[in-house]
């Protein structure tokens, strides 16, 4: 049997699947380039009256574009905090056996499993009482709830792949722990750090419930800004669609940079 036939079958399957994935996104992009009059009056597969006015609205109005800035600030803060805290812990889990290590590991994972809805109200009270309500750091810390366990899990998988002899050789050569970790160990697991950072970024970026509960004005994320505008200003479909498209872009950029590592990150099964 020739190998050509199954290949064609695969290509058809993949094309259909990608088409299914892209159709809603295409429709959103299509709408973002139309005027509201066109959206509501006629049904067109392609914008007849191509306009960038919706994007201009967003990019010139601070109450819109500050949403993106806020989101990016707390996502980056969260990624840095998560990775910085997770690195030594993952090292400990991958190298040493200590009292209660297995229970501790599972306990960390349970936080990844906790429904954000359970934590929304207590978080609101906790951060209000310590005066962190409506700050970027509050959202960044709240997202640590699920991102730190995740980062530990991913990094531990990568660190297990580094032979222990390397640590021992470095100590014999007189490296201190800190210097060894920064100069030798971290470069070795650079791709692991990249994958972990990618997933932290992703989960912090897509989360809405906690970030909406913990902010009101100063740190309001773009996702929440969108929800408000839908209900307040009626149905400005064009601007809504344009805002949606703009939230997809950062994710698409990040994916593009890590595309070669995604498969490896998934291969470790540590998502």
């Amino acid at each position: 049997m020739s190998r050509a036939r199954p290949r064609i079958g695969s290509a058809v399957v993949m094309t259909l699947y990608l088409l299914f994935l892209m159709l809603p996104i295409y429709w959103l992009t299509n709408m973002s380039l139309k005027t509201n009059a066109e959206i509501l009056s006629t049904f067109t597969l392609w914008p007849n009256d191509l306009t960038f006015a919706n994007y201009r609205t967003i990019l010139t109005d601070p109450s819109w574009y500050m949403g993106y800035v806020n989101s990016l600030i707390y996502v980056v803060m969260n990624t840095v905090i998560s990775i910085a805290a997770a690195l030594p812990a993952a090292y400990a889990f991958s190298r040493y056996r200590f009292l209660g290590d297995k229970h501790l590991f599972f306990w960390l994972l349970t936080n990844r499993m906790a429904p954000p809805a359970v934590f929304a109200l207590p978080f609101f009270q906790l951060y209000s009482s310590v005066g962190l309500f409506d700050t970027h750091i509050a959202v960044a810390l709240a997202h640590c709830l699920f991102n730190v366990p995740l980062a530990v899990w991913i990094l531990e998988g990568f660190m297990r792949g580094v032979p222990k002899e390397i640590d021992e050789t470095a100590y014999i050569d007189g490296y201190s722990f800190g210097r060894f970790f920064l100069r030798i160990f971290m470069p070795l697991i650079a791709s692991g750090i990249g994958v972990a950072a990618f997933f932290c970024f992703m989960f912090s970026w897509v989360e809405l419930l906690l970030s909406r509960t913990l902010t009101s004005v100063d740190a309001k994320p773009i996702a929440a800004t969108m929800t408000r505008t839908v209900s307040a200003s009626g149905l400005d479909w064009g601007v809504l669609a344009a805002a949606g498209v703009l939230t997809i872009l950062p994710g698409a950029l990040v994916i593009w940079f890590v595309r070669n590592y995604i498969a490896k990150g998934f291969a470790l099964g540590r998502v």
Partner: peptide
């Protein structure tokens, strides 16, 4: 394929 995974949930 990864694209839908990185879209904020309310979007």
């Amino acid at each position: 394929m990864s694209l839908p995974l990185l879209i904020p949930w309310n979007v």
